[in-house]
Nucleic acid binder design. Structure first.
Length: 353
DNA sequence: AACTCGGGGAG
DNA sequence: CTCCCAGAGTT
């Protein structure tokens, strides 16, 4: 016994979508690889921000085997500036697995897609519905917002209960016969019509069935419980120049921000420190113990804000006649530094120099 | 369940 | 400033 679905909302959203959708390149294909790339890029990222990255990425890596064969540094370089760099590392690792485990054929089974690194429930549903029209409902930030308003859901979207509740609700509302279209429609509706701040409910075709609108409580949904705090960190960067145009770089490998990216020699301190204080640290002595004719000059300081950290960075330029190899650092030609993937913070410094 | 992981744009 | 974006992984 299957109960007939109520597809009135789906019908409204699809009608709205057909009239208002943006023309986006990843909607012109059913190639799961292309759709996968677009979905990873768009995780926690606005279309406007990810668009150019998508274009460059699929131009350089038009197929999964070409991505799998690339060096991780090149993948990260293409990702530079976009943030959440684990997306790029996971994308690259997953491409290799597709090549080896699936002989280069992108998996079609939802569970197989879900098992890929960097692919969670949202992305798996997006890929199989857009590429194969399989009936899996997407639940992203847009869907949370649209459904929480229409049904006046009081459960916080960042709670385990809330996530389950919205998944079930989204799946109940899904038009199984046109899942891809339905999923595109509800997300685009959230992105353009049912926007986070002061949506234009007067022009909304779903306002007739929107409980939040009826109660004049559109601005209270979606309900969120979370509050994240920001950690302060102090980065002291040393732009070490020596010889005939050489400098030192270090690849971040720790489980921390910017994993896989390169940066200048760094001394992180628990609080702000003067250069005189830095001189006395073990880290300083380790980096510069073999420094001959050391000359340090203050260059600039920058405050770099992440969603969860506030980094206070100070940059110094260090001139030495010669440095011997220091463990963990690589020596590169200063003219080649643009080849290496770096954080926005380091990039902003480098482009000033 | 709570925490971590980027960067940018809108208001 | 605050919020949040086609979220996922780790602890």
């Amino acid at each position: 016994m299957s109960k007939e679905k109520d597809l009135r909302l789906s019908s409204i959203l699809i009608r709205w979508y057909n009239r208002n959708k943006r023309d986006l390149p990843w909607r012109d294909t059913t190639d799961p690889y292309i759709i996968w790339i677009s979905e990873i890029i768009l995780q926690q990222t606005r279309v406007d921000q990810g668009y150019a990255y998508f274009t460059r990425f699929v131009k350089r890596f038009p197929s999964v085997d070409l991505l799998a064969q690339a060096e991780e540094d090149e993948v990260l370089k293409l990702w530079q500036g976009l943030g959440y760099y684990s997306r790029a590392r996971n994308l690259h690792a997953a491409a290799k697995i597709v090549l080896e485990k699936y002989q280069g054929v992108f998996p079609q089974d939802y569970t197989d897609v879900l098992s890929m690194k960097g692919v969670g429930e949202y992305t798996a549903a997006a890929i199989v519905s857009f590429a194969y029209d399989q009936p899996h409902a997407v639940v992203d930030g847009n869907v949370f917002r649209v459904l929480s308003r229409i049904f006046a859901v009081e459960e916080p979207i960042d709670s385990t209960k809330g996530k389950k509740l919205f998944s079930q609700l989204a799946q109940e509302l899904l038009d199984d016969k046109r899942a891809g279209l339905h999923n595109q429609a509800i997300m685009e509706f959230g992105a353009l019509q049912c926007v986070p701040v002061s949506p234009d409910c007067n022009s909304c075709p779903a306002s007739v069935m929107c409980l939040a609108y009826a109660q004049d409580k559109v601005n209270v949904y979606p309900v969120k419980a979370g509050k994240q705090k920001v950690r302060a960190r102090f980065f002291n960067y040393f732009d070490v120049r020596y010889g005939d145009g050489y400098m030192l770089l270090h690849k971040r490998t720790a489980k921390d921000i910017w994993q896989g990216l390169y940066e200048l020699p760094l001394i992180e301190t628990a609080e702000a420190m003067s250069i005189e204080e830095l001189h006395r640290t073990d880290s300083f002595r380790r980096i510069f113990e073999n420094g001959d004719g050391l000359h340090i000059k203050y260059i600039t300081q920058m405050k770099h804000i992440l969603s969860h950290q506030a980094i206070h960075a100070v940059f110094y330029q260090v001139e030495v006649r010669k440095v011997s190899a220091v463990d963990g650092y690589i020596e590169v030609r200063a003219s080649d530094v643009d080849e290496y993937p770096v954080s926005r913070l380091v990039h902003k410094y480098l482009e000033k120099m």
